[in-house]
Design a protein around this nucleic acid. Sequence first.
DNA 1: TCCAAATGTATAATAAACTTGACATTCAAT
DNA 2: ATTGAATGTCAAGTTTATTATACATTTGGA
Lengths: 73, 73
Amino acid sequence: MPRIEGTPSISNCIQKLRQINGLTQEDLAKAVQVTRATIIALEKGNYNPSLELAFRIAKFFKTDIQKIFYIGD
Amino acid sequence: MPRIEGTPSISNCIQKLRQINGLTQEDLAKAVQVTRATIIALEKGNYNPSLELAFRIAKFFKTDIQKIFYIGD
DNA sequence: TCCAAATGTATAATAAACTTGACATTCAAT
DNA sequence: ATTGAATGTCAAGTTTATTATACATTTGGA
């Protein structure tokens, strides 16, 4: 949806979690059923994931969506 | 993103929360800065919200994204 | 019953979220 | 220095999320 001017953006710690778990981007992409390009885009903040993908990533890392994706920065 | 065959879909209790709080769809739409059409679509499960909108809805209802949106049904 | 408010439907346009594929750059081990 | 693995860039195509708008239907209070 259109970003609203003046609202803080969503950041994430996908890269950090991935590295802590010793995974490549390809590993994670396969685990959550998206392409590597999508993981790159998310890690670099090019766009936010769909809610569905957010669920899958949270489930994979066994944590909450709002622990991975957060407001700020 | 493309729905993956065989995966459960995301449901939500937006309508319930809205009614508990005595709000019209228009009220909620304005509160979270989307059109009424978007609220209708979400309540009827036509599509899932963006992560950003999920954040705004959760914030408005003072709860967590995963309390409003959940897997199943 | 009436009527305004609330909810619902439909649709085309736009923007964002992915995919694919090719190529470039970086990194780390040898 | 070399090299394979990992990461990064780019762009066009596809799909989903949202908007705007008009009209229809339902709801609930008077």
